[in-house]
Write a protein that binds this DNA or RNA. Structure first.
Lengths: 356, 356
DNA sequence: ACGCTAACCGAAACCGGTTTCGGTGCACAA
DNA sequence: TTGTGCACCGAAACCGGTTTCGGTTAGCGT
């Protein structure tokens, strides 16, 4: 049908009115007679008029757009949660007809440059940051700029900004408790570099869980590796080579847990039987791993929605510190958590074929 | 440090020049003396000046922004490719400092409304559409609007627009060939509803592969189900219940293939031994399925980059039909393709534990 | 009949840039 | 010395909207 977008000017001309009048009519100002208002409305959607958002937003001084900085973590399978998070963000923003801009950087410094650019060029009214580091220069920069932002995750100094996070510490206490309940006592932790705040939180949760249950925290049972499936595999191999290997492993993420499973299987052992594994993230794919991965699940789309709502509220003037939400993760039992495998040398492998 | 963005006006005042002069100085016009140009440049990045992009783009009449419509496919694990695609798109756009806007709709009609809105409100200069339907109203609409767009995938009437696609037909011929080479002849197809063009393409590839190898296409061996892991599982169960069940299955996607694996294991059979399975997508997670999934791999980030470049070229004036790229998928052998399992009643299950 | 007020719309300014068009001042040639 | 031309910058118009401010007109009371 029609192709070129119709501007306010041609709409006004078409109606024999001036541009400002038409504008106010469409925006429901009181000083426009109900008659003309109706007339304008009708003509507007007859001609398929849509206000040019660039112009409108320039005028009202609000880009009505939120930027999301893609987490930048090597080539790993670290992004499965991004699609769901974006979906949730989009839903929240869509309710007010705001837009979602995604931006990804190539390096840490490039990331700061991106923030500089996005904030100062008036393209976004706020930013969403994922996976903060322990001392994150991005947050520092945004605070210096006094620019609205929310963090998906939180850091140590989390009092003065807005965040939504899943309580990783609590989740790992839960994981450890669960494993202890199954009879385990040599429980290991497979983690990612501690520069990520979440890695730190979850490690603390692990340690607290151990202490709470009267277990000693053996440094050998804490293995940090690259944040990827390969990293998880490598770390687990080190653990299994220990003189006294663990009978259960909690992993900082599902991706790393998948690597752990591979390492365990690689030795002819069966995850969930000889060595229990609990991941973290609740990836749907976990249903199809070998065997299906027990994990701490969490609603990513919900996170996106909340982050969007929080950010818009802050842009509207709310104090950031008013918006801090801690979500609890849920233990999702699948097949990799099992009772402590005592006796019987680990070389003895059950012949039962696992069935999903 | 500084917080409020500095406008051209204050920069000009600071320099004792007028706004247009400063603008032209920064944009390298010839009618500005080298001296002042340098002076302006220096002052600009001293004050941290960044042009307001909303204003700039309004003025130059180009939003310099590309919209991506999130594929809207139930709750399935269908989106793992999105993150990579977005990454690729972002890279391509970033080279020219364009922005990436993501938009997702809640229903098919909502999707059309979104397109209407995005195009007519001047927010984007072009759109990227994923997973076209066989007779896609979105493409129809965009063509009517004469609005620049590229399609990730293609439809039957694909001559008059731009697209990037992986040759699904060819890929499935390859899959079938490979399986025939392994001795299989009863090869089944697990597909998703044929409204998706890709589902159609791949089915045709399957059929062609069968014919090419002198095999008959048995309608019973073609099972269409919901596009999800559960759908794949259900379809596979139907296949395995056949009087003469298949010895190999090609699946329209990795997600559905994961369901197929579950169904096969559910009967005490071993994928890759008793029943071979080949997926499509090349998801990295396939490395961790049970057993690791053989699949037809493809570079999603590359797709994103190409789509971005193509779209910008079209917006610059290129004829869309000039930009049509067909990529070939690569057979990625993991563990679910194996030689035809003859003899021995399928009830007889090997006791060997699979090792990754 | 007059004034006052309220209803309604147009004029003008602005948001922050870009781009075209003129005009000044200087160097240069005649 | 006087034109001529060029280098350089400012004035003005524009992109497509929003919002404040004035000015008519009509309706009302008196």
């Amino acid at each position: 049908m029609s192709n070129k977008p119709v501007s306010l000017k041609v709409l006004a001309a078409h109606l024999g009115l001036t541009v400002p009048t038409v504008s106010r009519a469409l925006n429901g100002y009181a000083d426009i007679s109900p008659a003309t208002r109706e007339r304008v409305r009708r003509a507007a959607d007859e001609l398929g008029y849509r206000p040019n958002q660039n112009a409108r937003r320039l005028s009202i001084g609000n880009p009505e757009t939120v930027g999301y900085l893609m987490p930048r973590i090597g080539q790993s399978i670290a992004q499965p949660f991004v699609a769901q998070l974006l979906q949730g963000l989009g839903e929240a923003l869509g309710k007010r007809h705001w837009d979602l801009l995604v931006s990804h950087a190539e390096s840490a410094s490039d990331e700061l440059a991106q923030i500089e650019k996005l904030t100062r060029s008036g393209r976004v009214s706020g930013l969403v940051i994922s996976r903060p580091l322990r001392n994150d220069p991005r947050l520092q920069l945004l605070q210096d700029l006094k620019f609205p932002f929310v963090v998906h995750g939180r850091t140590g100094s989390s009092t003065d900004y807005a965040w939504y996070d899943v309580d990783g510490e609590d989740a790992f206490v839960t994981s450890v408790n669960h494993l202890v309940g199954l009879g385990h006592s040599r429980i290991a932790f497979v983690g990612s570099p501690l520069q990520f705040q979440f890695a730190q939180d979850r490690l603390i949760g692990y340690e607290r869980g151990m202490v709470v249950n009267g277990l000693t925290v053996d440094k050998d049972l804490i293995q940090i590796a690259e944040f990827s499936d390969d990293g998880g595999e490598a770390a687990t191999n080190i653990l299994l080579d220990l003189p006294q290997p663990p009978t259960a492993i909690v992993c900082v993420s599902d991706t790393m847990a998948l690597g752990a499973l591979a390492a365990i299987r690689g030795r002819g052992l069966r995850p969930g039987v000889h060595v229990s594994v609990i991941g973290y993230d609740g990836l749907q794919f976990g249903n199809h791993s070998n065997p299906p991965l027990t994990t701490m699940a969490q609603p990513q789309a919900h996170a996106g929605r909340r982050l969007g709502d929080m950010l818009m509220a802050i842009i509207d003037g709310d104090k950031p510190s008013k918006h801090q939400e801690l979500q609890r993760a849920q233990l999702l039992r699948r097949m990799t958590d099992g009772p402590m495998h005592t006796a019987a040398d680990q070389k003895l492998v059950s012949t039962r074929e696992e069935t999903t």
